[in-house]
C-alpha cells in the first residue's frame, strides 16, 4: 500500500477515535446516566421528568415483594431519609439483596413509582472473608444497624 493511502487511513482512524470519545462524553453526560440520583432528590423533584435517569440507594429491608406468576418485583429504595418505590420486571442480579446497595435505571411513572428498565446491584469497597463478616454481624447484633452507606457519604 502506498504511504499516502496508509496515512489517510491513519488520519481516518484517529478522527474516528477522537470523534467517538467526544460523542461518548456528550451523550453520557447529557443523558444523566453517568451518575445516579438519591431518593431524597427524587422526592424533591430534582430529577428529569421526561427522560430516563438512575436512582440509587439501599433496598429497604423487608420491602421486596414479588408478583406471583411473573418476574415483576416491587421494592423501596432508601437513602435512610426518603424512600422511592420501584417496580421492575426481569431478572435481578445475584448481589441484589435487601439492605444492600442498588442502582436502577428508568423513569417515574404516573403512579408515583419508579419504573425501572434495568436494576444493578451496587456493592461497596469493603472486601472481607466470610468468617470476618459473620464476626462483624455477630458484634452488631443488638442495636439496629444499617450497612455502611457509601451513598450517604456521597450526598
Amino acid at each position: 500500500m502506498k504511504a499516502r493511502y496508509r496515512r489517510f487511513a491513519w488520519i481516518g482512524l484517529g478522527l474516528a477515535a477522537v470523534g467517538i470519545a467526544v460523542a461518548l462524553v456528550l451523550s453520557a453526560f447529557r443523558s444523566n446516566l453517568v451518575f445516579f440520583f438519591t431518593p431524597s432528590q427524587v422526592v424533591a423533584h430534582e430529577v428529569p421528568q421526561s427522560r430516563p435517569f438512575r436512582v440509587g440507594g439501599l433496598v429497604e429491608a423487608g420491602s421486596l415483594r414479588r408478583d406471583p406468576g411473573s418476574l415483576t418485583v416491587h421494592f423501596l429504595v432508601t437513602d435512610t431519609a426518603k424512600t422511592v418505590p420501584v417496580t421492575y420486571t426481569g431478572l435481578l442480579p445475584d448481589l441484589f439483596k435487601e439492605g444492600k446497595g442498588v442502582v436502577a435505571q428508568g423513569r417515574m411513572g404516573a403512579d408515583g413509582a419508579f419504573h425501572a428498565t434495568e436494576v444493578l446491584a451496587k456493592h461497596d469497597e469493603n472486601y472481607m472473608p466470610p468468617e470476618a463478616k459473620s464476626a462483624i454481624e455477630q458484634a452488631q447484633r443488638g442495636p439496629e444497624s444499617m450497612p455502611s452507606l457509601h451513598e450517604a457519604r456521597a450526598r
Binding site: 451518575f35 438519591t38 440509587g56 451496587k122 469493603n126
Partner: peptide, 9 residues
C-alpha cells in the same frame, strides 16, 4: 458523583 462504581478500597 453518585456512581455505580464503588469507591477506592
Amino acid at each position: 458523583w453518585n456512581t455505580l462504581h464503588q469507591g477506592s478500597s
